[in-house]
Design a protein around this nucleic acid. Sequence first.
DNA 1: TTAGGGTTAG
Length: 655
Amino acid sequence: MVTSSVPLRLNRLSSNCSTVDLWNSQIREAVNKNHPRKALLLFRQMKQNAIEPDNFTFPFVAKACAKLSDQKYSQMIHTHIVKSPFFADIFVETTVVGMYVKSGRIDCAYRVFDEMRERDVTSWNAMLVGFVQMGFLDRVCGLFCEMELVGIRPDAVTVMGLTQAVSKSKNLYMLKGIHLFGIKIGVYGDVLVANTWISAYAKCGDFGSAELVFDGIEEGLRTVVSWNSMIGGYANDDKFVDAFNFYKCMIGDGFRPDLSTIVSLLSSCKQPDELFQSKLIHSHAIHCGCDLAISVINTLISMYSKCGDVDSARFLFDGMHDRTCVTWTAMIGGYSCKGDMDAALGLFSAMEAVGKKPDLVTLLSLISGCGLIGGLGLGKWIDSYAGSNGLKNNVMVCNALVDMYAKCGSIGDARELFYVMSERTVVSWTTMVAGCALNGEFREALDLFHEMVEMGLRPNHITFLTVLQACTHAGFLEKGWECFNTMISVYNINPGLDHYSCMADLLGRKGKLKEALDFVQNMPIKPDVGIWGSLLSACKIHRDVEIGEYAAHHLFELDPHMAAPYVEMANIYASAGRWDGVAKMRSMMKCNKVRKFPGQSHVEVNGKTRTFTVEDRDHPEGILIYELLDCLSFQSKEDASYSRHLEGISDHDLR
DNA sequence: TTAGGGTTAG
């Protein structure tokens, strides 16, 4: 809408300046204050008032278009520029390149760039950044070489563009090369360049180099962005403790956190034991005035949910006036991840009722909740909802559905969907392998793994973990070793504690206790409670007092207050008739003040939660329940024996 | 120059 206030004001001010200068200053102010629409409105008014724009007007108008990232406006402004006498101006043309880059029209940007009669380093940088943003690494390198050939000297912006390009591809080797190049051309002292390097090194996982660059910035030159780059780097890698330590140093150095600091830090708080620090960050956000930004509130909702405080999340959610799809999804996800599907679905309906359209992330949250509670009926409904709302052609949604079906015990549905998916990623195959293993289809799990490898897909550390788990549960020792060795020698993946734990468990279950002990003792990483616990459990099955004592000794050292190792060791002693050992365990438990709390199970029947413990006979129908349980147990053993018979594995093999 | 909220495999 055209208003008369601006021209009137301009007329009053026009005594010392030309009219176009005044329009330009208004447009520039609107752009700098981040009001691109206002800038474009002023430009239209200017034309309507028959004021011809000059070579200063166009760059600002182009910048406004770039901020809007709108292809239609970009095209319109370009047409204006082409018709103007400033079309051949290097400054104007460079801005047009930047405008097209920002609106995602890299083809148009390159056409303008290619047809420029004259180019300076800024023109080359604008084009470089364009290719960087599109992830066209080969074009970036090509353009960079061409730039050198025509004798254009790269500057700090060139180095920053190249750094961003390689950080996107996580190519640490190339990043170090660009770092050296930056030092060579003398831009290493530029704090903007240093900040880009910090962020890039963090993205490549090289936190040592990131910290070296951070420490190398002169203290007076460090900015809040330098701190944010370090904090964001650690936060993105789920290293909350490191991120929080940097945050404390930042505050100690007198820096005021901004929106970026707060959002980065909060998004890395995912554990209940991080709730205290998270609340501290929340209070800082309030102190800094960042707590009202919608991105911060959304992150807070997600943070409180993940840390187990869903009530606080809901309190924030209820207090919001403008909720975006992200807000609704964060809260729905909060309920879903703790299995409260009634609340999650209630919000999903409320969301649709207020006219907010759920997206694929909303569905992903709901689907994973169904898998958690085994809600097959609800899961199927979401499947059909995804299909009728055009969200089922997404590979992530399909992966989540396959996972949900497998977790709900409906492996047939999982298989059916898996085989009709138009695209299958490593996650899809891993999900299917894990699903088969979960449903006892161990051979199919291994076949799928081999099929995936034959198709040229590269398995990752999670794929190997699921295959190892399948081998452990099936008792496939040879296959387990083969998989473990392949992971190291063929795929160059270092096994983590989980992989070692699986192998130790597999060896132990098969009664290869000495081999298992040797394996654990020679691990390149320190064995944890899980690994020693697996070995101790195997000793209990195979009644090995000596190795059992050794494993228990390590467990007592790691955590003397954990009851399970004392109980397991006492059982091992009892089965060997070593009553002195049983008494010793009792006395150690007393001495270390260890109390064993009986494990409880919960089951929801007709909306009512029932809680019970081992050998719990309090229920009025206890006798009937235990009779049925014995029946089921017998039937299950018979079924397992029959399955093994079919597969050619005897009970003897499993011992 | 950083970061940018909700998300699929263990």
